Lab assay of single mutants.
Amino acid sequence: MALNTPQITPTKKITVRAIGEELPRGDYQRCPQCDMLFSLPEINSHQSAYCPRCQAKIRDGRDWSLTRLAAMAFTMLLLMPFAWGEPLLHIWLLGIRIDANVMQGIWQMTKQGDAITGSMVFFCVIGAPLILVTSIAYLWFGNRLGMNLRPVLLMLERLKEWVMLDIYLVGIGVASIKVQDYAHIQAGVGLFSFVALVILTTVTLSHLNVEELWERFYPQRPATRRDEKLRVCLGCHFTGYPDQRGRCPRCHIPLRLRRRHSLQKCWAALLASIVLLLPANLLPISIIYLNGGRQEDTILSGIMSLASSNIAVAGIVFIASILVPFTKVIVMFTLLLSIHFKCQQGLRTRILLLRMVTWIGRWSMLDLFVISLTMSLINRDQILAFTMGPAAFYFGAAVILTILAVEWLDSRLLWDAHESGNARFDD
């Protein structure tokens, strides 16, 4: 018995066209964080690309023209004298008006014999932002004059995390709450300039795509075929072959399989920071003279006294001054041990922890910024005066060393310790 099946006739004509040209192939790229070699397709503007294995951002879609970056830099340069030299806060102490600005706080630190601690604050609040705007201006002028731009481009990517104007702005709020127990506070004209400078700096850093600047100024022929001998440069993120001198053909720094002496430098910085954190938390970090009496505060006791007036601000200072430094030390110690013992479990967790400490590390400088600003506000000789204690130097040095330890660690070593050939990683 035959089955009668109805015929289905399409209502619209289906047209099949042959592909007349070869589909576009992607360029081969190595991930600078996990060293995976993959094919990167062509990316349009405002599109980002991520590593298929570790999800690290390979290409950032946010990109401004150099002219727009230069305009932002010149605007920031105009704001800087007002943000640093004009009063941020006014207080009335014992019937006398006192003005506080950024430069005055750094000068008070240096004047009291601790120039190293003052230079830490100076670099993060004044030096690094000033280098940022002058570097962008150098790129703008240098591109037109045919100057060598490689050193500036190499420095810009590392400079971003040292620009800490946003953290200093939080420190202004913390210092205001600490001082309000002794005097009446009012915002100064410099505060508005400083807030504007923070906003412009944040926007500029978020749109400063150094890798795209490398592509514009020093374009290189990408690798179009897969080759395990391809290496990625950690300076400019170019994937290719080393030249005859073993250097990256684009930025001219040595092109090595792994960062040289990464573990040794990381261990040295980490152990030194552990040693410095002990006096930083045991010795007094601030000293207040009130009517001839002397009151010393460690980091913890200062947080407890701050909690009596504002528990939320005390929580912020606790996280930045105690929780973050010790968390960074514990995480980095764990990561280094996992590399030495070739741990194969929990790779995803370790990668996330490394990215976390990379982002939060700079916030530990908050305590030094609060001390710097408070020193310029309260300084009335023996009637009422505020000065920093010996722990300030140890704390600042420990924070900087932990930042350097994270920067010096080559994250690809975590993958080397893991089993080879993993296309995915999980716990």
Rank of each mutant, 00 (worst) to 15 (best):
N143H: 14
Q47T: 07
N4E: 11
D227T: 09
F386Y: 01
T204A: 07
G95V: 00
I91M: 04
G421P: 05
L197Q: 03
A83I: 03
M36F: 14
W140V: 15
L366S: 09
L230N: 08
F141H: 00
S308L: 08
C31Q: 00
W84T: 10
S286F: 03
L78I: 02
Q382L: 11
G190V: 04
N422T: 15
E21C: 09
E211H: 14
L414S: 09
L94T: 02
R17N: 10
E419A: 11
R221H: 07
R348Y: 10
T298A: 08
F333L: 11
K265W: 02
V179T: 12
V203R: 08
C34H: 00
N209W: 13
D63F: 15
T239Y: 03
I136M: 07
S301D: 02
I299E: 00
G95S: 09
I274F: 12
E296N: 15
G188M: 13
P219M: 09
I287K: 08
I14T: 14
V406R: 02
D410E: 02
L347D: 13
R256S: 07
M304T: 09
D416H: 13
S321E: 01
L336E: 03
A405K: 04
I14W: 12
A320H: 01
P10C: 09
S262L: 03
V317S: 00
R25W: 12
L88C: 04
A137W: 14
L337T: 12
V102N: 03
V179W: 00
I106F: 10
V370R: 00
V275I: 11
H237Q: 10
K178R: 03
V370Y: 00
A385N: 08
T15C: 11
L169C: 10
W140F: 14
L414P: 03
S39T: 12
A115W: 02
H340V: 11
T67Q: 07
I339L: 06
I43P: 09
R259V: 12
S420W: 09
W267K: 03
L234E: 09
G142W: 02
Q108E: 06
G302Y: 00
C236M: 00
L401N: 08
L40V: 09
V121Q: 09
A196M: 14
L401C: 12
S338N: 13
T9I: 15
L197W: 08
S45H: 12
A312P: 09
R231S: 05
S308Y: 12
L230V: 06
L404S: 07
M356H: 10
E419T: 11
M120A: 03
I98K: 03
Q47I: 15
F333C: 15
R247T: 07
K12F: 09
L23F: 07
H90W: 03
L169P: 03
L145R: 04
L263D: 14
M72L: 08
G118H: 04
R53G: 12
D35W: 03
L159F: 02
I371G: 01
G190S: 03
E407M: 06
A49N: 06
C251K: 00
L130V: 11
C233V: 00
F74I: 10
T11K: 08
L323F: 05
L414E: 06
P242F: 06
F318I: 03
H418C: 06
I185G: 05
L409Y: 09
A391W: 01
I98M: 04
D181K: 02
S193E: 02
L263G: 08
I91C: 09
V232A: 07
E419Q: 07
E296Y: 14
C34N: 00
E21W: 13
A391K: 00
S286E: 00
V370S: 01
D426F: 12
W415S: 09
F386G: 00
E22K: 11
A385E: 03
I106A: 02
K160H: 06
L165W: 05
S273V: 07
S286R: 00
E161S: 13
S420K: 09
L40W: 10
I383Y: 05
I322C: 15
F192E: 07
S286C: 06
P390Y: 05
V357M: 13
D416N: 12
I287T: 08
Q104Y: 04
D60L: 12
A70C: 14
F38Q: 08
L336C: 10
A398I: 04
A70D: 14
A83T: 04
Y218L: 06
K229W: 07
P242D: 04
T75P: 14
L159S: 01
L323W: 04
F217G: 15
E296S: 07
D166L: 15
C236D: 05
L88F: 10
G171S: 13
A56N: 15
G173D: 00
T239D: 06
L145W: 11
P41M: 10
L3Y: 11
S364G: 13
T117P: 05
K342T: 09
D99C: 12
R256A: 08
V329C: 10
L93T: 01
V275L: 07
D243R: 04
L306D: 00
D381A: 13
R250G: 05
G235M: 01
F333N: 08
V195N: 08
R144C: 08
K178V: 00
W415A: 09
I288F: 04
L366D: 02
R221T: 07
M76V: 05
H184W: 13
L200M: 11
D60I: 08
C34M: 00
V331F: 14
F74G: 14
D227V: 11
W92P: 01
L290F: 04
V16N: 10
